[in-house]
Nucleic acid binder design. Structure first.
Lengths: 342, 342
DNA sequence: TTTAGCACTCAGGGCTTAGGAGTGCTAACA
DNA sequence: TGTTAGCACTCCTAAGCCCTGAGTGCTAAA
């Protein structure tokens, strides 16, 4: 599609623009070590690249900057891998070497390290509880009418909710029920629990426990199905140092977006679940991130995706570094999960 | 200290400035309904008020704006109460009428309603677990070496942590210990638990349970003492619509502050624990909130303060409305707590 | 095919000017 | 003696203008 020279020029221009955030002129490109042509030649090629839609000019006498397609082409064909700094690599390794922290804590630290190294905002979605298996179920009565239910999963996640105790249900029958559920449901993935109860335990409950209809309503409260992944953020203010966010309006739009979990989660959805995904600018179909890009990757356990981790920065982001870093990070994170839960 | 006329003028000027965010001129003040003097007279008084330090001028030919002391005087002596909108009052009442939500959920909704009505940022600190009483303790083993500990309090709060199971400790002895702790410690405030264990249960443990030294180390992990209050935020981006936050630098400073829990918590500390507290500008002793004010109030249960809820806005905030609203809100919230836990 | 040369374009900074809001002072008035 | 009208003065702001420099596109020569 592009000649080799055009690719050289496009790559040089993108990388120059990523660093300096100013439109790049032909002279600047021609002075780079990897370019061996005069400014005039570059100008010709740049005019062609602009016609093809890879470059844009903010106004006639300014240099060029990459268009969305320009970034796309750069990411898909030109950028290649980048070696990660030794010290940064070390920080990642050290994080996943620790054993004792709760999963949530490790996740928070992972997100945090990612935002610190990249200087962008980093977001983690998940891990979903969907697949987690029931380890232990407990109901703690607070008053006659109110209790707290606890579900501990095999990954150590605790789901807690406040539930209403139906009229006429005795403490001992609740206990009986909980015991039954624990013996029958232990090891079952959370998303199957409800089905199991109705298919297999219904008759047993009705035989062994009095007031079983009321108890079923309690079970309904305990086993609700919002098993969605949680969101973890770090470095939400990093992006404020970027020159494209001088305008408070844009800052507000983005910060508001961050508070809408579902919208953020949607930014991560993808068809091809595995591997690194780069969504550039308007590919995200969301006003607030029109001039942002999102690089994200799935982490998985036993071949099944658990969630996604990603970096959000301006479209003028250092894709090369972010993608390479994310590759390493996700691999190490998945390895860590395997070691702990696999 | 001030003549009545000076107070009239100061009040008018503060209220005018709060609405329009522009320095207020003598003409504007003299045109208000509650002022019956000519602009020239106002000018004389304003010059005096400036000399006394209650007003400032950004430059010679601009109007005046309140200084920090000006706001202080206004808040302390001039503003008076304000009737809360019927619809807003209703929203508050409706919130606290609901019964079933978990405390955390109610708290989040309270903060949210406060930020929506005021259009500033609202923050809640606490409630501290300090005083909560132990309802139920549970240890769920995940693997041989790792377990999850759960503490349910009488308010329905669940404290969970991942703990390490010492070598050589059997499942049954853990169970024994948990049972013992539950019978002996139920109803004891959390901050007393550790003392109790060492003073009264030590000998009993050593008699009944094998490996009791290892078990004690487990207990130490379970009963850690970070019972600090959590922070809840809402409307963090509201403040971005204020003209004093046009500058992204200031936005960043504030957002960064929000991520430092301890610094935020310190903003709420106070000597006189009860009642409404207004901290204006530099009274907060923190660069990032130099041009912000914080109005906060304690909520309490059985005469004991549980935490504080507050509003953060620009120094040019609508103190009258915020203070009045907070009075109502805190009273209703405390009443709600009493009904539920009192 | 590449490059040097040259005329042209246009944003941004600096400077000037006009307008207007608001002041302080003075003198007249009740 | 306190209050008010009048007036000269200050100084910010926005608008207009010019100039500069970076960068371009085109043309002609190498």
């Amino acid at each position: 599609m592009l000649t080799e020279r055009q690719e050289q020029i496009l790559r040089a221009l993108v990388e120059e623009y990523i660093v300096h955030a100013d439109p790049v002129g032909s002279r600047t490109v021609s002075k780079r070590e990897d370019i061996g042509f005069s400014a005039a030649t570059i100008r010709n090629e740049m005019a062609d690249l602009e016609e093809m839609g890879f470059l844009e000019q903010p106004h006639t006498s300014a240099g060029r900057m990459p268009s969305q397609s320009g970034y796309r082409y750069y990411v898909d064909y030109l950028m290649g891998p980048q070696r990660i700094d030794r010290s940064e690599l070390l920080a990642v390794r050290r994080l996943f070497a620790s054993q004792m922290d709760a999963l949530e804590q490790t996740i928070q630290q992972t997100v945090s390290i990612l935002s610190r190294i990249t200087n962008y905002t980093s977001i983690l979605l998940g891990p979903e509880l969907y697949d987690n298996k029931l380890k232990h179920l407990q109901v703690v009565p607070l008053t006659d009418r109110v209790a707290v239910s606890l579900i501990v999963t095999d990954t150590g996640h605790v789901d807690q909710r406040r539930i209403r105790v139906p009229e006429g249900v005795s403490l001992s029958s609740v206990e009986q029920m909980v015991n039954l559920l624990n013996t029958k449901l232990s090891g079952i993935p959370l998303h199957r629990l409800k089905g199991r109860v109705y298919r297999e335990l219904y008759s047993e409950l009705s035989r062994h426990v009095e007031h079983y209809e009321s108890l079923l309503s309690m079970i309904d409260q305990i086993l609700v199905d919002d098993l969605d992944g949680r969101l973890f953020f770090s470095g939400t203010t990093n992006i404020l140092t970027q020159p494209e966010f001088r305008d408070v309006e844009k800052v507000k739009a983005l910060m508001d977006l961050f508070e809408q979990s579902d919208a953020v989660a949607r930014l991560f959805t993808t068809d091809h679940d595995m591997g690194i995904q780069v969504k550039i600018g308007q590919e995200n179909h969301l006003e607030a991130v029109n001039n942002c890009s999102i690089v994200s990757a799935s982490f998985s356990l036993n071949g099944r995706s658990l969630g996604r981790i990603g970096v959000l920065g301006p479209t003028r982001m250092n894709y090369r570094k972010v993608v390479s870093l994310l590759e390493v990070l996700v691999e190490d994170f998945s390895e860590y999960l395997r070691r702990r839960y696999g």
